[in-house]
Amino acid sequence: MVVTIFIALTLNFLLPRLIPGNIALTILFDKYGSHLKPQDLKLIESQLDLHGSLLQQYQIYLVQVAHLNFGYSFYNYPESVSSIIAQSLPWTIFLLGSATVISVLIGVFYGSYIGWKSGTRQESFLSTFAITLSSLPYFWLALLLQLFLAVVITVDGVHLFPVALAYSTSVTPGANLPFILSVLHHLALPLMTLVITTYPGYALLMRNTIVNVLGEDYMLMAMAKGLRVERIRKRYVTRNAILPVSTSVALSIGYIVGGAFIVEEIFSYPGIGYQLYQAVTNFDFPLIQGIFLIITLSVIFANFAVDLIYAFLDPRVTLK
């Protein structure tokens, strides 16, 4: 984990410095030079100013990162990168977290169901359905859902779901019911997109591991023991089949992040992916880098957390 973090940090440090002639600054001045006050320009310049040897710069960079100081956003100047991230990260964690939990739950149940029915027509149909869903490009699905559920179809002249944003402008953020309902209503479509494209992968994996577990000797023994069917399902089959699924959850987090980003962009969901999209269109390089670093670190930590959970689930694995 330490190695990965170190490489991510270094990559993030080196990338802008490998570009000849500091494109970042050039683009920035071309675009916004006329809008910014001279003292601001100076400050931005000093932020990008690359004095001293690479090693010295690297030291300064590491110290800054350790203080969560990623500099200032170009576009939203004088707002700092960390404050933008702090505002948007919770939305992404909310969306991504709920999508992951729901996908895993649906995937495990769906997969167990078809795993038990392995070899039947129903299983073949449901697997094929899952394969098809898992092939849906999420950005396209997002647009389809948006087009049909938020624009085309109306019930009594009212759209089923909002087109964009995380909550309605007519509610006041806080711990009140209208706000919470509005948040959930706005979450629905982005969440649906992610769940529909993510759960089939878990379901198919779950199906395969169930089929493997059913062929294990301890299953035969469980049958011979005359255990109740629910006990065999829960403690013998699901308990063992869940192990490979939990590993794949870890591996797929990085992938779902990408999906979540595009979905955020489509639904203007104010998470970190939407900020990244904004940053890319506005050539806001400090923000791009800050977001990349935070996301990478989060994914690495999420992986680590899943490893811990795995060690808890599988007694054969011990943490070193």
Binding site: D217, A224, K225, G226, R235, R239, N240, P315, R316
Partner: peptide, 29 residues
Amino acid sequence: RWKEVSMIFQGSMNSLNPVMRVEDQIIDV
């Protein structure tokens, strides 16, 4: 099964559930 006729399987290494403690595999039956 098990109350009238029980069985010791060939290769018990694989016939115990790897994620359950020994006592639980005795208690559950």
